[in-house]
Structure formats: structure tokens, C-alpha cells
Design a protein around this nucleic acid. Structure first.
Lengths: 142, 142
DNA sequence: CTTGAGTCTGTAGTTCCTACAGACCCTACA
DNA sequence: TGTAGGGTCTGTAGGAACTACAGACTCAAG
């Protein structure tokens, strides 16, 4: 049962790597419009909806929140996207990602350093435990 | 009402930037131990609990799940593990942190690349939207 | 002695999914 | 023709990690 004009839900799910139920969920919350139905009532996804789902999933993978994704989609939907607007949002997100990376690098350095101090012997005061406790949050995300 | 030996909940919340209720939630799920109470039954947080909360929040900011945070805390709450055990757990977390960093770097690269294609002018077809939509998700997060 | 701010408990709501349950529908194979 | 198997539909429940009440208590200040 495969309409030539689109994919059934499970097929779309497999193709995009999206969870089956998540597709229905995105429809429910309005990220995906209601797709046309076949005679028996099954959802049939035309290529443009498949692409829209790809976009959503890709954005999700990149760490955009639902609201951010929604606002990106609004820009697409209203056609007259000002490129600058999209650029701004992307830049903001990129900054966020970069802050996150540098925080993680601090943690990495701390863990690596403490690990290198550790002999693996069974001594009472483990240096790892000492240094983990000492991490502060002064340089955190906004 | 400020015990000299610690902070009240709201004070701790302000100091750490943590939501008031979240503190109680962490107590409920066992990340924070039950703090001592003042005569009237108010929670009074000694400095070591404040520090523990800092640690939890910092880990959370860095994207660790509750379970990951929980096992990090196990390192701090030195049970009867041998140093070698602690070392092993630390290594595991270090690996995780490194994987997380490299995932984020991929994201960073993608965002930066798409951004660099953008002129900021008001043209109809925004390259960011194109590339987000067009990218396949074959090289996604683990 | 009242007002306002802080605390307590328990419970309900939020976000972003994910997983059933029970009922159709369709194809294939014996 | 029958039935086994898959797929689909709807609605609803659950989970993770919070977040926000509601209603009662406590306490210092004016």
C-alpha cells in the first residue's frame, strides 16, 4: 500500500530515522501540517512534508529547541524570509554551542588531570574525588 | 532568619541561580541529602551542600543526564570503592565528555559553515534554510 | 496585632517526546 | 475462504527533569 504521491507514516519514519509516534506528535503540535489521507484514512506524506520533517529533525540534532525550530519554520512558511533574521538566530545558537564546548573542555581537562594523578592503588584519599568536589560554576552558561 | 551554619532554601537558590523548587526536587530524587532543619522545620543548607548543588547544576548545564550526575556524585560520596574503581568510572566519564565535545564540534562546524554562506542581504532563498533542509542526517549524533 | 515575606507539604502542570491499547484495514499464503 | 501478519488509526498513559501552584504555618517589622 504505497501511494505513488507520497509515503506512509512508517515508511517516512524509516527514511528519516524519526520515531513513528514523533511524526504524529509533530503534527499535533503544529510543526507538521496535517497530510492528505488515502482512501482508507492513512496519512500520505508528499515529498515536501518529508523534507520539512528532515529540517525539523536536523535542527533538533543541532540542539535547537522546539520554539527555535518553530520560529525557523515560520520564516520558511511566510516566504518573505529576511535572511538577516535567520542569520541572527543561527549566530546566537552557534554562540551557545561554543560556550558549551568550552565548558566541556574545562571539565575534560579537570578529569584528565586528576586521572593522571591516580596510581590505581588502593589508597584511602583518592585525588580524583578531591578535585571533582572542587569544580565551581563561576564560568557557566548564561 | 539566617542560621550561621547555613543558608535557607531561597537564599541557596539565589546564590546558585537554581530554581527554588528544583532544590527540593533534587532532595526528593536523592541527589541532595536531606539537610538539617532549624527549630521551626526550615531546611538549613551547610556549605558542603551548597557546593554539592553547585556541582549538580554545573553538570546539568553541561548536558549530563540525571543518571550521569548521580554516578558522578557517587565518586564524591566515596563509598567502599577502591581507587581503581573510581579511576574506571572517571575514565568512563572522561570518554563521555570527549564524545560530547566532538559531537558539539560537528554541530559547530555545520552552523559556522552555513552561516558563512549567508550574506545577510534580503534575498529570497536563504542558504541557511537551504542547507538545513537539504542536509541529510546520515552523519548525526551517536 | 496585622502585614508581608518566607517556609512547609503535597500535588498538578510543562516540555518533548515515547509507548501502549483496542479497533480497523490489507495482503499473502494455505 | 480463512487466518496470520503486518500496517494504520485514535486516544491516552508514561517518563524525564523540572516548575508552579495551593493551603497552612512561622516569623520579624511596623
Amino acid at each position: 500500500m504505497q501511494s505513488k504521491s507520497g509515503l506512509l507514516r512508517a515508511h517516512l519514519a524509516r527514511k528519516t530515522g524519526c520515531n513513528l509516534e514523533t511524526i504524529r506528535y509533530y503534527e499535533k503540535v503544529g510543526l507538521l501540517p496535517e497530510p492528505p489521507r488515502s482512501a482508507n484514512g492513512y496519512r500520505v506524506y508528499p515529498p515536501e512534508l518529508a523534507q520539512r520533517l528532515q529540517f525539523i529533525l536536523r535542527s533538533r540534532d543541532l540542539g535547537f529547541t522546539m520554539e527555535e525550530i518553530r520560529s525557523l519554520l515560520v520564516l520558511i512558511d511566510k516566504g518573505e524570509q529576511t535572511c538577516a533574521e535567520v542569520m541572527g538566530r543561527t549566530q546566537t545558537h552557534l554562540d551557545q554551542v561554543r560556550r558549551r564546548i568550552s565548558s566541556l573542555k574545562q571539565i575534560e581537562a579537570t578529569l584528565a588531570a586528576t586521572l593522571s594523578q591516580c596510581t590505581g592503588e588502593n589508597i584511602p584519599d583518592c585525588p580524583i574525588l578531591e578535585s571533582l568536589g572542587g569544580l565551581d560554576r563561576s564560568s557557566q552558561l548564561p
